[in-house]
Design a protein around this nucleic acid. Sequence first.
DNA 1: GCCAACGTTGGC
DNA 2: GCCAACGTTGGC
Length: 166
Amino acid sequence: MPPRSASRYWLFKTEPETFSINDLAAAPDQTTCWNGVRNYQARNFLRDTIAVGDGVLLYHSNAQPLAIVGTTRVVRAGYPDSSAWDSRSPYHDPSCQPEKPVWYMVDIQLENRFEPPVERARLLQMPQLSGMLLLQRGSRLSVQPVTPEEWRIILELAAPTRKSRR
DNA sequence: GCCAACGTTGGC
DNA sequence: GCCAACGTTGGC
C-alpha cells in the first residue's frame, strides 16, 4: 500500500473556558472525543483524513495567553459525532439524525504538555512559521493541517536544546 | 470592546 | 445561482 500523502500533523483549537488541556489531563486515560466541530472543511479532515497515530497540537484560542499548550495523538479515527442528535448537548444540531450522520469527531490522547506553553507571540516572531495557517489573518479553521517542518520547529520552541545554552 | 474575515441563510 | 444580511470566530 502506498504511503498516505495527507498530513500526519494537525492543530486543534479550543477555547480553554470550554475545554482546556487541564480538562484533557484530568480525563480518563487522558483521552477525549473531539466533538462539536460544526464546519464542513474541518469535518472533512476529521471524517476522511485524520488517522490513528497522527500528531495534534492543542491551541488555546480566546485565551490569555494565546498559545499552543501541548501535543496529543489520535487514538481513534473519524466516527459520527453523537452530540449532534443529543438535545441536551450545546452542540445539538436539530437537522441531524443518527441514521445519517453529518458531523464527525476523532479521539485524542494527551502526549506532552508544553511547560511553558508556546505563545502565539513567539510563533509570530519566527519567519519560518509565517505561512502557518494559524497565523494567517482571518483564519478561523478549528481543525487544520500542520506541515512536518512546522511541527518540528514548534517542538523545538517547546523544548530548547542544551547546545543553545552557554 | 472593536472589527475584519469568513460561513450560512434566504429572498429573488 | 446570485448576493445582501446576518451571525460567529477570534485576534488585537
